[in-house]
Design a binder for these strands. Sequence first.
DNA 1: CCTAAATGTTACTCATGAGTAACATTCCTT
DNA 2: AAGGAATGTTACTCATGAGTAACATTTAGG
Lengths: 223, 223
Amino acid sequence: MAPPKPTDAVLADPSPWRSPAQRGRDRALKREAVLKAAARLFNEKGFHATSLDDVARQLNVTKPTLYHYFRSKDEVLFECCRMGLEMIEAAATPVPGSSASGLERLRALMEQYAEAMTMDFGMSITRTPDTALSPENRAELRRLKSQIDRAMRGVIQSGIEDGSIAPCDVRTAAFAIAGALNAIAHWYKPGGPLAPAEIARQTADFLIQGLAPRTPERRRRKR
Amino acid sequence: MAPPKPTDAVLADPSPWRSPAQRGRDRALKREAVLKAAARLFNEKGFHATSLDDVARQLNVTKPTLYHYFRSKDEVLFECCRMGLEMIEAAATPVPGSSASGLERLRALMEQYAEAMTMDFGMSITRTPDTALSPENRAELRRLKSQIDRAMRGVIQSGIEDGSIAPCDVRTAAFAIAGALNAIAHWYKPGGPLAPAEIARQTADFLIQGLAPRTPERRRRKR
DNA sequence: CCTAAATGTTACTCATGAGTAACATTCCTT
DNA sequence: AAGGAATGTTACTCATGAGTAACATTTAGG
């Protein structure tokens, strides 16, 4: 009895033989599994305190196996950070046909940014010092970060122009906002009392409201 | 011609012979010089990328010399951070006979905090991952940090009570503020266009004002 | 003076962990 | 079947850098 041909298996195929496409997908999945395990360990114990042997052990393989998927430890960290930054960048790229005010767009950006910082890849952006990376990878990450920074400043600027955001120093505001959001990666613990969405909302609220008391007729924002 | 006795030398003494007190002071000065050089290098190249040989070279001595003043590389980093944290803590401890409002006290705290983050020891707090430290030292630093956090929350709380600060989630506010201030250590460069005091003021302003536009009668704070 | 403490040097040890060489196995292709 | 790509293993090499041993020199003080 011959095994069923992979190309015939459209639905419900428990066969151990994989199609070429499936094989490629397996590889991508394994790559991602390495990144995920690595990110978790890097965040928990720190990049330098985590050896690739640690990462491999976590996945029930040995260190040389990892080198089938990555060129170096450096590349592993770099990819983790890139994943995280791409999540944020997706949130920062403007939607073409949007009629939202600058403040509304900024709030959405801040909340997605904040939620990203509660996830493994997002955390790795701020929890690992960029000095751990090779000069080339460091430069590339800086490029991605400044792209996000530019996008955020753009949103702030347009908010000032449409009157939804108070005039302020855009540069300082962007730095302060990014700083407050990045900090989440340092104090958030998955088992905590606040869910990521809650943290995101509260932090965005605070940055919008500020510390100074509202005047009576504008005391609290709804929702 | 006998050298002047150290005890006689009250003023203007270029003698190479040091009094016992002066010797002790020399030692303390040298210790501090090591810390200063180390902090600068740690911040610039990263803790793990900086060897004690690097630090020693910077001071025109050799590595074993440093071990006369510190037990381990770990201790050097720890002391750098402790210095920085003590600067902030000094700013966070309440002045007994003060009649300032909560917001005024918080602004002063934020500005001093921000300025500390532009200095070598302040930077080392946030630019070095706490995973680089021994468990004991890490715990001690965490203790100092949470002491500052408690002080900050106390000031915020009292500001809410006296009406100078809008009601808000104190925990979230304290985290966001500390995050925004800590971030300064990551982007500030000594040669930049903004002086530390300027950065401190602008960042504090932003955190107080928030992003939302003021209502007409309270549009801008004076100064 | 003579000893002890402090301060500095040169020349090591030694653990760690990134990265590699060489080899085994499995699966797909022809 | 046979060759080769992909994936995995065991058993190393090798650089780095923290920390130390042993030794030299100066200074303080009895």
